[in-house]
């Protein structure tokens, strides 16, 4: 088990993306990067400097960026598009739907500043619906890594995958706990800790909160089966059902609207295969607002404390 007190280092997940992209540039000459005027924010500068001929500055024109990425992919390139999560999804949904997903193009849509934790910019930029939009597209792989290391590993892994991918990460510095050497397998959940009383399935930044919650619950004698679902689609059904068979109740935790996110994917699986009590830790169908990331997570109920309460509630409903 990871102990939160042993975790000393923090970095932003977007920097994991930037580091992964740079490495890909060296490994694979077909990798190209496109950015809509947010090169610094997306940490794509290093790639741009190292491979200027393979970097496309699209300007503040995201629809065209997605279309161009589809065209580049069509001829055999592996394009990675970079902008904020809001402008990577909602703004360009139809372009992704028709030119990328329906057309089966090998485009990697890489989205930073997802969720509430982008902070002070407020709700215009804090998209909480992107996982839902992306997972509804047939053939789309949806990944929300939990820390710097996992984001870097996921960035490397998606280049090897043939097909469109939505990779979602964030802005704030966040504790690093995913083993640096761990190979990232798309669609394979990461079992952080085995337990028998309650399953906690967490994605993205909420995995850190789930680790702290697990420590609290264990201290109270509640055995937690803690699983990181980094790939929301395709969901690792086998890992989820194996866990539910042990614990018979679950908590889902995500920095997303409770409608359409990881929790709903889990509920759908459980309803058809192994119905059991579930508690959601997610944003309750609302927009965000300005504030520091920590303040926002508290106000919107996305902390370890909320996960602890949800776990006890789920346990009581067994």
């Amino acid at each position: 088990m990871i102990h939160s007190k042993d975790i000393k280092e923090s970095k932003d997940t977007r920097s994991g993306f930037g580091a992964g992209l740079l490495e890909l540039g060296k490994q694979n000459k077909d990798v190209v990067a496109l950015c809509a005027d947010l090169t610094g924010s997306l940490k794509m500068d290093a790639f741009k400097e190292a491979f200027p001929e393979r970097f496309v500055q699209a300007g503040i024109a995201e629809a065209n960026m997605i279309g161009m990425a589809a065209g580049l992919a069509s001829g055999g390139k592996i394009p990675f598009t970079g902008t904020f999560a809001n402008f990577s999804t909602g703004r360009v949904y139809d372009q992704i739907r028709q030119s990328v997903a329906y057309s089966g193009k090998n485009v990697k849509i890489c989205a930073s500043h997802a969720g509430l934790t982008l902070g002070e910019d407020g709700a215009t930029h804090q998209i909480l619906e992107d996982i839902g939009m992306m997972k509804m597209l047939p053939g789309m792989t949806v990944i929300n890594p939990c820390d710097y290391n996992q984001t870097k590993a996921a960035t490397l892994a998606i280049a090897e995958h043939q097909g469109p991918v939505y990779l979602r990460f964030g802005r704030p510095k966040w504790p690093i706990f995913y083993p640096e050497t761990e190979k990232f397998v798309i669609g394979k959940a990461w079992q952080i800790k085995e337990g028998s009383d309650v399953s906690i399935f967490a994605t993205g930044h909420m995995v850190w909160e789930a680790i702290k919650a697990t420590e609290e619950l264990e201290a109270e004698g509640i055995s937690v089966d803690l699983i990181n679902i980094h790939t929301i689609k395709p969901l690792d059904n086998e890992a989820v059902l194996k866990s539910l068979h042990k614990t018979k109740c679950m908590v889902s935790a995500e920095e997303h609207n409770r409608i359409g996110g990881l929790g709903d994917s889990l509920a759908q699986l459980a309803a058809s295969s192994f119905p059991c009590p579930q508690e959601y830790v997610a944003v309750n169908d609302s927009f965000g607002e300005s504030g520091t990331p920590d303040e926002l997570l508290v106000k919107y109920g996305l902390t370890a404390k909320n996960i602890v309460a949800a776990a006890k509630k789920a346990l009581a409903r067994k």
Partner: peptide
């Protein structure tokens, strides 16, 4: 409205 962007992408490739 999407074909021109796609074509530009192919031209870049």
């Amino acid at each position: 409205g999407q074909g021109l962007s796609f074509a530009v992408g192919v031209a870049l490739q």
